[in-house]
Amino acid sequence: MKRKIHSLIVEGILFCGSGLALLSYSLTSYANAFNKNWGQSPYLFPLIVSLAMLGLSVWIIGEGILAMKKESGEAVAPQKGSSKQTLWVVTALVLCLVYYGALAVLKLPRITVGILGFSFLFSTFEIVTVLFLVAMMAFLGVRKWTVLVFVPLGTTLFLSIAFRTLLHVLLP
């Protein structure tokens, strides 16, 4: 079996790469800028940060090597999650992306309802949010249908009233 590379080393290489990317970005941008004066150049600060990042990545790689020597191959990486756990997170992310997409794409008609002198406006946000909440709760294992119906409705109503009606936040 191949000896496992310590995760710190991988991380260190990753940061080293991003540090180099930032370094080359600031240097090339500086070279292309018309105002050549490091003192007030907008690329001075990125340059310093990229150098610091390179230093840190070396440090982290060093720590990784030390740790590997000490524990001789015994993986100290955070206990590996099961693929099931990863699947959950991915599913949740997909749900959120669908939600985001729906908010961005759908343009449902706006309906204004007057209750007790207040006028409530219902639109894409409200409908999509109710559906999203139901889907997410079902995914997380809520099985009581009363909860599945009333919590999303109540939450959405509260959010809508609090933000759209009272605080004048422009909801999508």
């Binding site: 961005a104 997380l140 909801l171």
Partner: peptide, 30 residues
């Protein structure tokens, strides 16, 4: 938690959106 988490997600979406009124921020938040 399985009730709280979806609600918190919605709050996150609103919070990200409300600061500048653009959906781009919601994407960034995710």
């Amino acid at each position: 938690k399985n009730i709280m988490i979806p609600v918190v997600t919605c709050l996150c979406v609103i919070g990200a959106f409300a600061c500048n009124n653009r959906l781009f921020d919601v994407g960034l938040m995710f």
